[in-house]
Amino acid sequence: MNKKVCSFPILFALLALLIGTCAVVFPASAQAVPTSTGSITVSGTVARSYDAYQIFSANVVDGDSDAKIATDLAWASDAVRDAALPVLRSAGMPNSQTTAQEAAEWLNTDSHLTSALSAQLARSLQSSGAKSVALNAGTTAELPCGYWLIVADDDAIAQNEAGTAPIMALVGGGAVTVKPKAATPKVAKHVLEDGTAAWQKAADATVADDLYWRLSATVPAGLTAYDTYTVRFVDTMSAGLDPSKV
């Protein structure tokens, strides 16, 4: 079943955190013995549940300065590769680059992994039928080591809750914690002051005067990560105003 990515009526969330430094480097010698799985926790109350899609499998160990070292990268599956490559190429990755290592290095170069590209990857993975792993907020899960795309589960987002733009996390080595942060539209209401022709929070008026007011919303950056979005104003008339004249 196809699902939209992070589509909800009023609230939006942008993931403000990448997990440490997820650099793909090649050490002369490993600092620890790689394990087959790593733990990950999605914290906070931005959303209740998430879908995790593995993009690349890898051997992952902890390096210096909280960086993680990933080696021996491979596509998680043929279905994932076939879903991801067209998206990456449309974003500028050369057609000659086909391996997981090449794709990962391109994503790590010049901040290619934007919120919009993450959303496109998620949509392609969802429509391809690639398998996902369910994650519950606040609950630690064990996942095979590698790069995972974490996507808020739209079906589990209730009214007045917020979803998140997808995020890539490198799982393996030490425990990983994803800390999504919600961002909501900022709404303002101003009335036109006739004397100064300025929009402000209050204005002088007498009986039978016409009043003009303006509602505005400033929405979070990164809306290209969403399929659709809606901002809905609910405005209540002040006492003494005639709503039939609106």
Rank of each mutant, 00 (worst) to 15 (best):
V178G: 06
A119P: 03
E102C: 08
D154L: 04
I19D: 09
A134W: 12
A91V: 00
V151F: 02
K68G: 01
L121V: 01
G163C: 10
W75L: 00
I40F: 05
A52G: 04
V187M: 11
F233W: 13
A23M: 12
N95Q: 14
S244Q: 12
M168R: 06
L135W: 10
F56L: 09
I55F: 11
W148E: 02
T206K: 11
R89E: 01
S7C: 09
G63E: 04
L211A: 15
T37V: 14
I69Q: 14
Y53L: 03
P144Q: 09
Q97G: 00
V46N: 00
M237I: 08
G138F: 05
K179R: 09
I55E: 07
P166F: 03
L73V: 03
A67N: 13
S124V: 02
N160P: 01
A221Q: 14
R123Y: 05
S90P: 01
D72F: 11
R81G: 02
P34T: 10
T45R: 06
S118A: 14
V176Q: 01
G173I: 03
S96R: 13
A58Y: 02
S65C: 11
A30Q: 05
A79Y: 01
P166D: 06
V231A: 02
D78T: 08
D210N: 09
Y147W: 08
A188W: 04
G38V: 08
Y229G: 14
T228W: 13
S124G: 04
V171W: 02
P180E: 03
K245M: 11
A198Q: 14
V171F: 05
R232N: 13
Y226R: 12
I10K: 07
L170Q: 10
Q97A: 01
A152W: 03
T218S: 01
A202S: 14
A119H: 10
A205H: 07
A198G: 04
T164H: 15
A47Q: 09
D155R: 12
A79R: 06
M168F: 02
A182E: 10
G174D: 12
A183T: 11
I19Y: 10
S127N: 15
S29D: 07
I40Y: 01
D62A: 14
N108Y: 07
V151W: 02
A156D: 13
L215T: 07
G129L: 09
I150N: 01
A134Y: 07
G195E: 12
T196Y: 10
S57I: 00
L143S: 05
M168S: 12
C22V: 12
S127R: 05
A239D: 13
A47Y: 02
R214Q: 15
V5M: 04
A119Q: 03
V171L: 04
L135E: 03
I157Y: 02
W106E: 02
V5K: 00
A130V: 07
A208G: 07
G92F: 03
R81E: 14
T228Q: 12
A28Q: 13
W75V: 01
D194K: 15
A158R: 10
